[in-house]
Protein backbone atom coordinates (compact mmCIF):
# COMPACT_ATOMS: atom_id res chain seq x y z
CA UNK A 1 0.00 0.00 0.00
CA UNK A 2 2.60 2.53 1.14
CA UNK A 3 6.14 2.29 -0.07
CA UNK A 4 8.73 4.74 1.23
CA UNK A 5 12.20 4.63 -0.27
CA UNK A 6 15.16 6.62 1.04
CA UNK A 7 12.92 9.57 1.96
CA UNK A 8 14.81 12.73 2.83
CA UNK A 9 13.32 16.05 3.84
CA UNK A 10 14.27 19.35 5.40
CA UNK A 11 12.64 22.28 7.12
CA UNK A 12 14.26 25.57 6.23
CA UNK A 13 17.92 24.50 6.24
CA UNK A 14 17.64 21.70 8.72
CA UNK A 15 17.74 18.14 7.44
CA UNK A 16 15.01 16.31 9.38
CA UNK A 17 14.59 13.02 7.52
CA UNK A 18 17.80 11.43 6.35
CA UNK A 19 16.73 8.43 4.37
CA UNK A 20 13.66 6.51 5.54
CA UNK A 21 12.63 3.15 4.12
CA UNK A 22 9.30 1.70 5.11
CA UNK A 23 6.75 -0.60 3.55
CA UNK A 24 3.21 -0.83 4.87
CA UNK A 25 0.78 -3.42 3.52
CA UNK A 26 -3.00 -3.62 3.87
CA UNK A 27 -4.05 -5.15 7.17
CA UNK A 28 -0.90 -4.11 9.02
CA UNK A 29 -0.31 -1.86 11.98
CA UNK A 30 3.10 -0.25 12.21
CA UNK A 31 4.29 1.59 15.28
CA UNK A 32 6.92 4.27 14.96
CA UNK A 33 8.66 5.11 18.19
CA UNK A 34 11.58 7.22 19.09
CA UNK A 35 12.82 9.97 21.38
CA UNK A 36 11.66 13.58 21.04
CA UNK A 37 13.03 15.31 17.97
CA UNK A 38 13.86 12.11 16.15
CA UNK A 39 11.62 13.00 13.18
CA UNK A 40 8.45 11.01 13.95
CA UNK A 41 5.98 13.84 13.49
CA UNK A 42 8.01 15.21 10.59
CA UNK A 43 7.50 11.93 8.78
CA UNK A 44 3.75 12.31 9.25
CA UNK A 45 3.91 15.90 8.01
CA UNK A 46 5.90 14.99 4.90
CA UNK A 47 3.54 12.14 4.06
CA UNK A 48 0.46 14.38 4.35
CA UNK A 49 2.04 17.27 2.45
CA UNK A 50 2.51 19.99 5.04
CA UNK A 51 3.77 23.13 3.35
CA UNK A 52 6.99 23.99 5.17
CA UNK A 53 8.60 20.59 4.62
CA UNK A 54 10.76 20.22 1.55
CA UNK A 55 11.45 16.76 0.19
CA UNK A 56 15.09 16.59 -0.86
CA UNK A 57 15.28 12.99 -1.96
CA UNK A 58 13.67 9.58 -2.15
CA UNK A 59 10.21 8.53 -3.22
CA UNK A 60 6.86 7.55 -1.74
CA UNK A 61 4.26 5.55 -3.59
CA UNK A 62 0.75 5.06 -2.31
CA UNK A 63 -1.17 2.31 -4.09
CA UNK A 64 1.23 2.73 -6.98
CA UNK A 65 0.80 6.51 -7.27
CA UNK A 66 3.47 9.08 -6.54
CA UNK A 67 2.26 10.53 -3.24
CA UNK A 68 4.77 13.37 -3.13
CA UNK A 69 3.39 14.97 -6.27
CA UNK A 70 -0.13 15.27 -4.86
CA UNK A 71 -1.71 18.19 -3.02
CA UNK A 72 -2.68 17.53 0.61
CA UNK A 73 -6.36 17.28 -0.39
CA UNK A 74 -5.64 14.75 -3.13
CA UNK A 75 -3.64 12.60 -0.73
CA UNK A 76 -6.66 12.58 1.56
CA UNK A 77 -8.97 11.78 -1.35
CA UNK A 78 -6.70 8.87 -2.27
CA UNK A 79 -7.24 7.50 1.21
CA UNK A 80 -4.55 8.93 3.48
CA UNK A 81 -5.56 10.28 6.87
CA UNK A 82 -3.61 12.00 9.59
CA UNK A 83 -4.92 12.13 13.14
CA UNK A 84 -3.26 15.33 14.30
CA UNK A 85 -1.13 15.57 17.39
CA UNK A 86 -2.61 19.03 17.94
CA UNK A 87 -6.01 19.22 16.23
CA UNK A 88 -6.74 22.78 15.13
CA UNK A 89 -9.68 24.78 16.51
CA UNK A 90 -11.73 26.28 13.69
CA UNK A 91 -14.36 28.65 15.11
CA UNK A 92 -17.40 29.20 12.92
CA UNK A 93 -17.09 25.94 10.97
CA UNK A 94 -19.42 23.36 12.41
CA UNK A 95 -18.03 19.90 12.97
CA UNK A 96 -20.82 18.28 11.02
CA UNK A 97 -20.69 20.63 8.02
CA UNK A 98 -16.97 20.19 7.87
CA UNK A 99 -17.37 16.41 7.77
CA UNK A 100 -20.11 16.56 5.15
CA UNK A 101 -17.97 18.84 2.96
CA UNK A 102 -14.93 16.58 3.35
CA UNK A 103 -16.87 13.39 2.72
CA UNK A 104 -18.54 14.77 -0.39
CA UNK A 105 -15.33 16.21 -1.79
CA UNK A 106 -13.73 12.79 -1.43
CA UNK A 107 -16.75 11.20 -3.12
CA UNK A 108 -16.66 13.74 -5.95
CA UNK A 109 -13.00 12.87 -6.52
CA UNK A 110 -14.05 9.26 -7.05
CA UNK A 111 -16.92 10.35 -9.32
CA UNK A 112 -19.52 9.43 -6.73
CA UNK A 113 -22.61 11.59 -6.09
CA UNK A 114 -22.92 13.50 -2.79
CA UNK A 115 -24.20 11.39 0.05
CA UNK A 116 -27.95 11.63 0.73
CA UNK A 117 -28.77 13.61 3.87
CA UNK A 118 -30.50 10.62 5.40
CA UNK A 119 -27.61 8.30 4.72
CA UNK A 120 -25.16 10.85 6.10
CA UNK A 121 -27.19 11.11 9.29
CA UNK A 122 -27.28 7.34 9.66
CA UNK A 123 -23.53 7.07 9.12
CA UNK A 124 -22.87 9.86 11.62
CA UNK A 125 -24.92 8.15 14.30
CA UNK A 126 -23.34 4.79 13.67
CA UNK A 127 -19.77 6.13 13.83
CA UNK A 128 -20.47 8.31 16.86
CA UNK A 129 -21.52 5.22 18.68
CA UNK A 130 -18.58 3.21 17.43
CA UNK A 131 -16.00 5.65 18.75
CA UNK A 132 -18.10 6.83 21.73
CA UNK A 133 -18.12 10.42 20.52
CA UNK A 134 -20.49 12.79 22.30
CA UNK A 135 -23.30 13.70 19.89
CA UNK A 136 -23.46 17.21 21.32
CA UNK A 137 -19.96 17.86 20.05
CA UNK A 138 -20.82 17.12 16.43
CA UNK A 139 -22.90 20.27 16.10
CA UNK A 140 -20.37 22.54 17.74
CA UNK A 141 -17.67 24.53 15.96
CA UNK A 142 -14.84 22.27 14.89
CA UNK A 143 -12.73 21.53 18.01
CA UNK A 144 -13.54 24.93 19.49
CA UNK A 145 -13.41 24.73 23.25
CA UNK A 146 -12.99 20.95 23.17
CA UNK A 147 -10.87 19.40 25.89
CA UNK A 148 -7.66 17.66 24.84
CA UNK A 149 -9.36 14.28 25.06
CA UNK A 150 -12.40 15.48 23.10
CA UNK A 151 -10.18 16.76 20.32
CA UNK A 152 -8.40 13.41 20.03
CA UNK A 153 -11.71 11.55 20.04
CA UNK A 154 -12.91 13.87 17.31
CA UNK A 155 -9.91 12.84 15.23
CA UNK A 156 -10.90 9.21 15.62
CA UNK A 157 -14.52 10.10 14.82
CA UNK A 158 -13.38 11.78 11.59
CA UNK A 159 -11.26 8.75 10.85
CA UNK A 160 -14.32 6.55 11.24
CA UNK A 161 -16.42 8.80 9.01
CA UNK A 162 -13.88 9.17 6.20
CA UNK A 163 -12.80 5.54 6.27
CA UNK A 164 -9.29 5.96 4.83
CA UNK A 165 -7.02 3.22 3.51
CA UNK A 166 -4.08 4.38 5.58
CA UNK A 167 -4.34 6.30 8.83
CA UNK A 168 -1.40 7.88 10.59
CA UNK A 169 -2.00 8.51 14.29
CA UNK A 170 0.44 11.18 15.40
CA UNK A 171 0.95 10.87 19.16
CA UNK A 172 -2.77 10.39 19.61
CA UNK A 173 -2.04 9.14 23.12
CA UNK A 174 -0.34 12.33 24.30
CA UNK A 175 -2.44 14.20 26.82
CA UNK A 176 -5.01 11.42 27.11
CA UNK A 177 -6.16 10.05 30.44
CA UNK A 178 -6.56 6.32 30.74
CA UNK A 179 -10.27 6.44 29.95
CA UNK A 180 -9.85 8.44 26.78
CA UNK A 181 -6.95 6.24 25.79
CA UNK A 182 -9.16 3.17 26.09
CA UNK A 183 -11.93 4.78 24.03
CA UNK A 184 -9.58 5.97 21.32
CA UNK A 185 -7.80 2.65 20.98
CA UNK A 186 -10.96 0.58 21.06
CA UNK A 187 -12.24 2.84 18.25
CA UNK A 188 -9.15 2.11 16.21
CA UNK A 189 -9.41 -1.61 16.88
CA UNK A 190 -13.00 -1.63 15.66
CA UNK A 191 -11.99 0.19 12.49
CA UNK A 192 -9.03 -1.98 11.56
CA UNK A 193 -9.56 -4.50 8.81
CA UNK A 194 -7.56 -6.46 6.25
CA UNK A 195 -8.19 -3.64 3.76
CA UNK A 196 -6.75 -0.75 5.71
CA UNK A 197 -3.53 -0.02 7.55
CA UNK A 198 -2.33 2.15 10.42
CA UNK A 199 0.89 3.89 11.30
CA UNK A 200 0.90 4.67 15.00
CA UNK A 201 3.41 7.26 16.06
CA UNK A 202 4.07 7.30 19.77
CA UNK A 203 6.64 8.12 22.34
CA UNK A 204 5.42 5.62 24.89
CA UNK A 205 4.65 1.97 24.84
CA UNK A 206 1.34 2.28 26.72
CA UNK A 207 -0.80 2.93 23.61
CA UNK A 208 0.62 -0.23 22.08
CA UNK A 209 -0.89 -2.27 24.88
CA UNK A 210 -4.25 -1.34 23.44
CA UNK A 211 -3.43 -1.10 19.75
CA UNK A 212 -1.18 -4.07 19.16
CA UNK A 213 1.25 -3.44 16.28
CA UNK A 214 2.54 -5.97 13.79
CA UNK A 215 5.79 -4.08 13.46
CA UNK A 216 7.70 -1.61 15.58
CA UNK A 217 10.26 0.80 14.13
CA UNK A 218 12.57 3.05 16.07
CA UNK A 219 13.28 6.39 14.51
CA UNK A 220 16.33 8.28 15.62
CA UNK A 221 18.04 11.26 14.08
CA UNK A 222 15.99 11.08 10.88
CA UNK A 223 16.53 7.38 10.22
CA UNK A 224 14.90 4.10 11.19
CA UNK A 225 17.64 2.55 13.30
CA UNK A 226 15.86 -0.57 14.42
CA UNK A 227 12.79 -2.58 13.40
CA UNK A 228 11.14 -5.49 15.07
CA UNK A 229 7.89 -6.87 16.41
CA UNK A 230 5.84 -5.72 19.39
CA UNK A 231 8.49 -7.10 21.75
CA UNK A 232 10.77 -4.28 20.67
CA UNK A 233 8.33 -1.80 22.18
CA UNK A 234 8.52 -3.60 25.51
CA UNK A 235 12.28 -3.60 25.38
CA UNK A 236 12.24 0.16 24.75
CA UNK A 237 9.90 0.67 27.67
CA UNK A 238 12.28 -1.20 29.90
CA UNK A 239 15.61 0.19 28.71
CA UNK A 240 14.67 3.65 27.41
CA UNK A 241 16.07 5.04 24.19
CA UNK A 242 19.72 5.46 25.16
CA UNK A 243 20.87 2.04 24.00
CA UNK A 244 19.41 2.83 20.57
CA UNK A 245 21.06 6.23 20.41
CA UNK A 246 24.59 5.09 21.12
CA UNK A 247 25.24 2.69 18.24
CA UNK A 248 23.39 5.04 15.91
CA UNK A 249 25.48 7.97 17.03
CA UNK A 250 28.64 5.92 16.57
CA UNK A 251 27.49 4.82 13.15
CA UNK A 252 26.89 8.34 11.99
CA UNK A 253 30.36 9.52 13.02
Amino acid sequence: MLNIKNLQAKVEDKQILKGIDLQVNAGEIHAIMGPNGSGKSSLASVLTGRENFEVTGGEVSFDGKNLLEMSPEDRAREGLFLAFQYPVEVPGVSNINFLRTALNEIRAYHNEPPMEAKEFLRLTKEKQKLVEFDARLTNRSLNEGFSGGEKKRNEIFQLAMLNPKLAILDETDSGLDIDALRVVSSGVNKLRSDKNAFIVITHYQRLLEYIVPDFVHVLYNGRIVKSGTKELALELEEKGYDWIKEPAATASV
Binding site: G49, P72, R75, P87, A102
Partner: peptide, 9 residues
Protein backbone atom coordinates in the same frame (compact mmCIF):
# COMPACT_ATOMS: atom_id res chain seq x y z
CA UNK B 1 -3.92 22.57 6.19
CA UNK B 2 -6.22 20.78 8.61
CA UNK B 3 -9.20 21.18 6.27
CA UNK B 4 -7.16 20.20 3.22
CA UNK B 5 -5.81 17.13 4.97
CA UNK B 6 -9.41 15.93 5.19
CA UNK B 7 -9.88 16.13 1.42
CA UNK B 8 -11.34 19.65 1.17
CA UNK B 9 -9.84 21.50 -1.82
Amino acid sequence: FYLRSRGIG
